[in-house]
Design a protein around this nucleic acid. Structure first.
Length: 423
RNA sequence: GGAGAGAUGUCCGAGUGGUCUAAGGAGCACGCCUGGAGAGCGUGUAAUCGCCAAAAGCGGUUCAUGGGUUCGAAUCCCAUUCUCUCCGCCA
């Protein structure tokens, strides 16, 4: 959520920058400012009235105590009018505030100045490409065929138990998943992240805190009986640990890592983009989250991209780093880098990580703040990134490392798998 | 799921209708004391909104959350959420 003070300071500039995200703020921004004016005006009157009320009540108390009952009763009658007025004003105040809030939560984060304009992923900026694109031998196949050939991932079994998008991993396939999770977690812990095991179901307040609600309502699985949402990413429970918290400046940066299953309804997805492991309703991901001082957040964004790059190098996967354009960047993000690995058999780039700086957007919603040395309170900046999402890593590993007699396991993973080949 | 008890500031904890402007303690910060540290002593110690260009100041709100009763609510009533104890069920 954008800060009202920021919006009021320079509305034209806000509208311009929202435009980079292809969001038209020309009506909603002035509307917000006029609602805020109205809110202030109402509060002024309400505060005044309440101050009178309080003074009167105090006076009556004193009179009763000193036995001047008649005088007290006279005053009591006077309060009725004040009470009615303040009741009406209070209703007006609450309504205005709610209206204002409803508009505010619908405004996306401002993109950073350096975010390129654009409509879709075609306008993204390729920052760099690393690693060698492998030349696959004759007869190479996409990962869904390899999965069947070596009996390591069963898609139709998932269909039977749950439905499309819920694969069943078996044998060395399951083991490889587990190895990847352990590898990612241990690397993060070595890099100074605190390991967290979060809940998989969260309440609505948490959904609002990280911005999934109300923007992505309908993309999350929802359990109405208990009013809980299945997490689409560990970002939600982990970041919300710090909801309504004032940290000490010395506690920054907070670095957390969590493995979790992730659940996404992916309503509206179809076609060959969703084939095999490309898009699932349930998948595994290791997520890194940082809460940092606003001064450092972009430096740390770069560090996080570099950290994820290191993981991909260790896995010997060719990858590229893409800076998202305004049209492709998420609702909550100010700047996002996607990391994509080359899927040799599908001959396309697959997004395996998305690293974002949310600046104070999530922090403002969550009231996540820190206190500096002088005692002043500021909103913190939040960042997160996948490190990494498993399915497409799995897809790329299977496809890129296939040869006539099986699938080679990169040496970094072998201590975790205990085998060097799936055959 | 049933019965009961409870939720107060950073923490512990007192407070059952009227200066609550929330006692007391711990913690923390600063100062004094000390060769240094500790102890001791002293001072301070929430958030949020509004008025004001800002600071200071003034006012509003906040004792789990939301309603209600009352001139006046941490305190009384109702609902919700959460925690604890016992019982039941159970990986």
């Amino acid at each position: 959520m954008l800060q009202l003070s920021v919006i009021r300071e320079n509305p034209e500039e806000i509208i311009r920058r929202l435009g980079i995200k292809n969001f038209d703020g020309s009506e909603i921004i002035p509307q917000i400012i006029s609602l805020d004016d109205q809110r202030r005006e109402t509060q002024k009157m309400l505060d005044n009235l309440q101050a009178q009320n309080n003074a009167m009540a105090r006076k009556i108390g004193v009179l009763f105590k000193s036995g001047k009952t008649a005088e007290a009763n006279l005053l009591k009658e006077k309060t009725a009018e004040l009470k009615n007025q303040s009741k009406d004003l209070n209703t007006a105040f609450e309504n205005t505030k709610k209206e204002l809030d409803d508009l505010l939560v619908r405004i996306p984060n401002l993109p950073h100045e350096s975010v390129p304009p654009g409509k879709s992923s075609d306008d993204n900026l390729i920052i760099r490409t690393e690693g060698n694109i492998p030349k696959l031998p004759e007869g190479s196949v996409p990962h869904w065929e390899l999965a069947a050939k070596y009996d390591i991932i069963d898609f139709s079994l998932g269909n039977k138990i749950s439905g499309a998008g819920f694969p069943v991993y078996k044998g060395k396939g399951a083991h490889l998943q587990r190895s990847l999770i352990n590898f990612f977690l241990e690397q993060a812990v070595k890099a100074g992240y605190l390991e967290i095991q979060p809940p998989y179901l969260v309440n609505a307040a948490s959904g609002y805190g990280t911005g999934q609600l109300p923007d992505k309502d309908g993309q999350m699985y929802y359990a109405p009986l208990d009013d809980l949402y299945l997490i689409p990413t560990a970002e939600v429970p982990v970041t919300n640990i710090y909801r309504d918290i004032i940290l000490k400046e010395s506690e920054l940066p907070v670095k957390n890592v969590a493995y979790s299953a992730c659940f996404r309804r992916e309503a509206g997805s179809y076609g060959k983009d969703v084939r095999g492991l490309n898009r699932l309703h349930q998948f595994d991901k290791v997520e890194i989250v940082q809460i940092v001082h606003p001064e450092n957040s972009y430096k740390i964004l770069d560090e996080m991209v570099e950290y994820v790059s290191g993981l991909l190098r260790a896995l010997e996967l060719p990858f590229r780093v893409v800076k998202l354009c305004g049209g492709d960047i998420s609702f909550t993000s100010a700047m996002t880098f996607d990391m994509e690995v080359w899927s040799a058999a599908q001959e396309r780039w697959l997004e395996v990580s998305s690293v974002s700086n949310f600046e104070s957007f999530q922090a403002n919603r969550m009231k996540l703040r820190f206190k500096d040395e002088t005692g002043k309170i500021h909103l913190a900046h939040t960042l997160n990134g996948s490190a990494l999402a498993l399915p497409r890593i799995m897809a790329a590993l299977l496809e890129n490392n296939q040869d006539a007699d099986g699938i080679r396991i990169p040496s970094a993973l072998q201590p975790y798998t205990g085998f060097d080949k799936i055959s």
